[in-house]
Nucleic acid binder design. Structure first.
Lengths: 245, 245
DNA sequence: CCCTCCATCTTAACAGTGCTCAGATTGGTG
DNA sequence: CACCAATCTGAGCACTGTTAAGATGGAGGG
């Protein structure tokens, strides 16, 4: 779905051997994303990404001021894609019920974390790195579709819709976005970090639905008893701190 | 509260110059934790931690099979401390109301993330690293109080109590721990990753209370309209992907 | 057409990293 | 006291992020 189409202009094919790559910045982002997916958030190096693109290590520094900047840019791109995905999920004509729309948004959010845990982890965590903020020179945020909405904004719009349609009391609207975001994000983070395991995307969807609905109507007001539940990857049981020789 | 008391047995003082350190493993964990606090999850090196303890870099490898193993052990220790903290918060005689107990547990969880974002991030994220699982030799999980309960277990017990006291329908009990954990964890993760900002611990406490209560009674059934809300550190606005020279 | 400009990329190098291995140093045990 | 096994040291390897100085070649003006 990506990784092909390395140069959009000019002839030739892979860009290997070409001195001027065409879109090195994008290619580096692609390579980094693939590496993150393959080997985890930190299981790769700038040099490796450069080599994969067919370029010397220092070439990357003409597009990103540091490795952290690369990660930050990738984070932005992934967050944008996530926002788009959420928006698309909400606009599916399947069911126009505002509750269902919100559930769909949450499911898109959580599924992304389930399908691509490492990339999602990177996307969420890039802001906390020490050099994350002020390492750059110029803010020109190229490479990212500036129209791509942040996940939080998509959620916010959805809640407005919920109020307008009379499904949420205006008094409860203030800050409700954070409550719902928190719920979605918690599930996504627990899955991405491997602290919880579910078997299959459908199970994740059910869990997401219950979580989102609970924040709206409350666990107290549940009708249907429910099905198989996540299993905790209990760190105390599973993970071990080892001592060698 | 920690970092002092380097050698519990034998005389001398700092352990510097002593060939046998006494408790190098613990000292390394302390140093690593301090470094994480000071410079972020990845802003430190094994060598640096070793140097801070006054020991050669390779000494660490007699206690941890790799750097990742150190991080994993630290994660376990921090999670244990978090569990204890949650348990303590629940047992405060302040208010015995089961709802309030659950809120207190959540507040302990979230406050930890707020006070020590980097360490908390490490604690949660250590399991997802590629070498996290099978890198070790022997599972002897020394150094960690084996009685320290995992946060999830504390939460679970609290929900049982909620059912026993008639505040939660048994039908809704199954999987409710995951729903509540998800909510707490989402807030903690968003705060630790800097995707949300609140001003002061009290604001965080209020947000936590609302979040936990929402998962129980639902946003729909809220009575009191509420106060200042978190501000999104909107990544699209704040963070920038930079391009040099 | 050529020629200059300058963004783009390269080669070379530096300090610092995780990790290994052969050997020095010890506290405890026979 | 002598030994042993645990503990720590020192040197060294392959690799990392990052920087500096020089090569390359596409774009635009003459």
């Amino acid at each position: 779905m990506e990784g092909m189409g390395e140069d959009t202009m000019k002839g030739k094919s892979t860009g290997r051997g070409r001195y001027h790559h065409g879109d090195l910045r994008g290619a580096l982002l692609d390579a980094a994303e693939a590496l993150v997916r393959e080997r985890g958030v930190d299981g790769w190096s700038l040099r490796e990404a450069s080599a994969r693109v067919g370029v010397s290590p220092s070439a990357a520094y003409h597009h990103f001021s540091s490795r952290d900047a690369l990660v930050g840019a990738l984070s932005l791109r992934v967050l944008g894609q996530l926002g788009e995905r959420m928006g698309r999920a909400a606009d599916l004509p399947a069911e126009a019920d505002p509750h269902r729309r919100l559930v769909a948004v949450g499911q898109a959010y959580v599924r992304a974390a389930l399908e691509d845990p490492a990339v999602t982890r990177l996307a969420f965590g890039a802001g906390a790195s020490p050099a994350g903020r002020g390492s750059g020179v110029e803010p020109r945020e190229s490479g990212v579709d500036p129209l791509a909405p942040h996940p939080h904004r998509v959620l916010d719009a959805e809640l407005d819709l919920l109020v307008k349609s009379g499904h949420l009391a205006p008094a409860a609207r203030t800050g409700a976005d954070f409550v719902v975001w928190t719920a979605m994000h918690g599930l996504a983070a627990l899955l991405a970090d491997g602290l919880i395991a579910v078997d299959g995307p459908e199970a994740a969807d059910r869990q997401t639905e219950r979580t989102v609905r609970a924040t709206l109507t409350g666990l107290h007001h549940e009708a249907t008893p429910s099905e198989p539940w996540p299993t905790p990857h209990s760190a105390h049981t599973t993970r071990t701190a080892d001592a060698p020789s």
